[in-house]
Amino acid sequence: MNILIFIRMVADVVEELKIADDFKSLDIDWIRFRLSETDEHAVEQAILLKEKYGGMVTVIALDAPEVDDALYNALAKGADRAIKICGDWMNFRSPGIAKLFSNYIKDENLLVTQTLIMSGSQAIDDLEGELIYYMGENLNIPTCGIVTSVNYRSDFNLINVYKEFAGGLRGEFEINLPAIIGIQAAEKPPRYIPIAKIRAIMKTAKIEEIDIPDDHISAGKEVNRLLEPEVSGRATMLEGSPDEITAKLIEILSEKAII
């Protein structure tokens, strides 16, 4: 199998987020970047597939702060190639990024019969919806999102995937390769790679950098304004020392006849 996987850095939402002066983007100085959580699962799933069925895993990302760490991490886990696409893509929206990636795949002849393209399913700032569907349309290949399990049948060159619905219900789908899927969760929790192993890989492996100019692709329309959620409907905060807070909590629970 020939696996191409697209990964991406996003703001860590556990940290404070600040809106920039243009009111249209986040203040980059405040962001702590991390690999999108579902991408971590996508990398894991790709490596699991390689371990099971062999083949080659290529990880591709747009240039972004700290993206090298994520790419080296994927190499340390077992990816064969890491590619960083440079250029002025910062303000491009998903449909434009999908064109860029699709064009790249076509230009490099990466879409062969045994190609499985993967990404994480749904990033936290995904205003235009899942990238895979825009790419699936550009490349005219089958597309399936929210996937939690993948098996390959080499005799028929097809994959069997589980797609998540609600209430724990899943659907099993059969898809011929080449195809594109969005990974929600890998079959196993993403493996941990010790720093020493990442340092070692940084000495031996290389991130391939390529430059793609943004001609002929439209950046897409930007949002008009970002804002912090209004404070209305906020919780009544219980303040004070832990002793005071727990006392109030017990009062509330007994008032509501829970205890």
């Binding site: 939402v13 809106i19 986040l26 936290i124 205003l127 949002v223 304004r225 970002l226 912090e228 959620p229």
Partner: peptide, 15 residues
């Protein structure tokens, strides 16, 4: 005008 909830609910956007 559409208001969307992004970044796990921490930021809203208006389009």
């Amino acid at each position: 005008m559409a208001t969307s909830q992004l970044f796990g609910g921490k930021i809203f956007s208006e389009t």
